[in-house]
Design a binder for these strands. Structure first.
Lengths: 345, 345
DNA sequence: ACCGGCATGGCAAGCGGTTGCCATCTGTTG
DNA sequence: CAACAGATGGCAACCGCTTGCCATGCCGGT
């Protein structure tokens, strides 16, 4: 019946074990690791050696209790399934690792409630938080920021440090690209109203359009997904525009499909530009022209910022850190066919 | 210079605060939460109420120290950037959340060393580990499993519980699908030699091919990426096969592109089947026929298994939990053109 | 009236580090 | 040679929660 308690998981060695083996007090062992200068160099060396022999590793939990330093950062992702976030996570993870931190990933599943609950569970265990694509309200975010140093990605929240990509510049490049190709009017396909980025992009497009003398329409909002884009295709068809800029790549991809299904050719009849350069943007036919954000750099920047605050720096809340965007031109954009792009028939 | 210590982060209430407010001993408060039956129902209720008023939340770190129960699980991902893992993470995350656990995500960045180090840092803080697409050796994995309950995903390691999708069945379906379309020969494009799944898939294909009377070739190994697939296109061209099954979707997608670039039509000249049904498989032209694994279910199953072990169940190491696969037929497969698929000219 | 047993709550000893403060020793300095 | 500062190590009190064990009170049973 009862098996003879086989490969028992033995207790790992503690500072007490090391102290005994080295003939010093536990506190000395502790200091040998956490406050190197505080103890005689030779003693420290000896302790280190013995600790290594015993296979001692400082228990992060035990350290965390009195000091609050858990060496963990939470990274909240709006939707872990969305490939857009992969590179951000990668960047965050590597910056964290460099600083000896570990990333606690929280998937918000695109839901305010889920996000709150998951964050709540994770919060007490982490030293800081990165919020990306948060669905929470500004005030909820400020609440979080009160409890732990927080950095917001791709969104600006008053009094909370943030890192964003240069939407305005990206949009300007996209608009200029279309104008250069000869388009005279462009339609913006909007994403979720609640999205900070959507507002930002729309505003930037308005400015750019004014500068370039482009006529502008806007349809939406649509869900920022491929089906959402297919939905939008209908609206775009009605507009009769020769060029479209979508809130993000998913929307743009869905849009292209919807258009093509309706017999509209891309880019011959309609040029399409997306945002984000997700994995997949280059896979579709035609390849999607899109505004790429420096995803990995964003992740890094966010974590770096967090860590510097943890190190005692003042959080930079005055204005967001903005990282440059880049226009990736692929086959989904081209010159307008004659007779289109000059407004409704 | 020194700012007047503004919105000070105040210490959150502890069981001591609650105990004082309720006029009981701290131990009673503790029990009111962790061992409900152990304390008088009314007392417990009162304590709960007061705790709620004070905004008390049990500090997971403090709980973890004496008990070792951190309520955290590590999930090691071979490459967080690979969309394949997104759904697995989602499944794992939700199963974990249901059980009150939080996921610590570790990105191995496709590197043995990175994986080891990151895991090492995370290990002491978690109660269990899910390894997906691990790059570590079997013995390294067994080491990990000795330290913490571990479940391996999509790989079998002796003495370590694992969850895999039914590669054999999936492969059989793919092979039969091709046979039904009239193909008489198929080429397998192999992935990394070190990959457990690759070996599994190749073996299964051999069996299926024998059953169905298909002739079989194998080329590779190639890196399991889109560029890897483009590379493979050349080899496939030389084989002159009418149907190809690739180790995974990335390879298959790259392959299709390479083929198309060389003027070979898919599926008219060559049919292509992939594995995994990643985001993107349906975006390419033509849509990729692929063997889909129940990703989310796998993630769930792994975490469920882990949690049951943590709950005292005996780990199921005898044989892997195998989840059914599914063939997703899209446009990349069709009947062979006459004159092809009957072997080399 | 006495005893065993159960329900309930408190005491105190951890869990494994960290750290303020004190004791000791050594080397300076006047 | 006394006074003193700096370097080094130890003591012990935490951090917040868990839990084995004991004390008390109350009940039914004999």
């Amino acid at each position: 019946m009862a098996d003879p308690d086989p490969p028992e998981r033995r207790h790992p060695p503690t500072i007490y074990d090391v102290a005994r083996a080295a003939g010093v007090a536990p506190s000395t062992v502790s200091r040998a690791f956490s406050r190197p200068g505080r103890v005689n160099a030779e003693t420290a060396e000896r302790i280190r050696r013995i600790a290594a022999e015993l296979g001692y590793r400082t228990n992060p939990l035990a350290r965390a209790l009195p000091t609050g330093r858990t060496s963990m950062l939470a990274c909240v992702i709006a939707d872990i399934t969305n490939p857009f976030y992969g590179e951000i996570i990668r960047g965050a993870e590597s910056a964290a690792a460099e600083a000896g931190y570990v990333l606690l990933l929280v998937d918000a599943q695109e839901s305010d409630r889920q996000e709150r609950e998951a964050l709540d569970r994770a919060l007490p265990a982490v030293e800081g938080v990165v919020l990306t694509g948060s669905r929470m309200s500004d005030s909820a975010i400020r609440m979080t920021a009160k409890q732990r140093p927080t950095v917001v990605l791709n969104r600006e929240v008053a009094d909370v440090p943030s890192v964003v990509s240069d939407n305005a510049q990206g949009m300007r490049m996209a608009a200029r690209h279309l104008a250069d190709l000869g388009h005279r009017a462009v339609t913006y396909v909007a994403g979720p109203e609640a999205s900070w980025a959507d507002g930002m992009r729309w505003r930037s497009l308005r400015e750019a359009a004014a500068e370039l003398g482009l006529r502008l329409n806007r349809i939406g909002p649509y869900p920022p997904t491929i089906p959402g884009g297919t939905l939008a295709a209908e609206g775009v068809g009605r507009q009769g525009a020769s060029a479209v800029i979508a809130y993000n790549d998913q929307l743009a991809i869905g849009l292209m499909r919807g258009l093509q299904a309706a017999g509209v050719r891309v880019p011959e009849d309609v040029s399409v530009v997306g945002f984000d350069n997700i994995f997949g943007a280059e896979l579709v036919t035609p390849g999607l022209t899109t505004v790429a954000a420096p995803l990995r750099a964003q992740g890094r920047a966010a974590v770096r910022g967090l860590i510097s605050v943890l190190g005692g720096a003042r959080p930079r809340t005055a204005q967001a850190v903005v990282l440059p965007a880049r226009l990736v031109v692929r086959a989904s954009t081209g010159g307008p066919a004659p007779g289109r792009g000059h407004g409704r028939p």
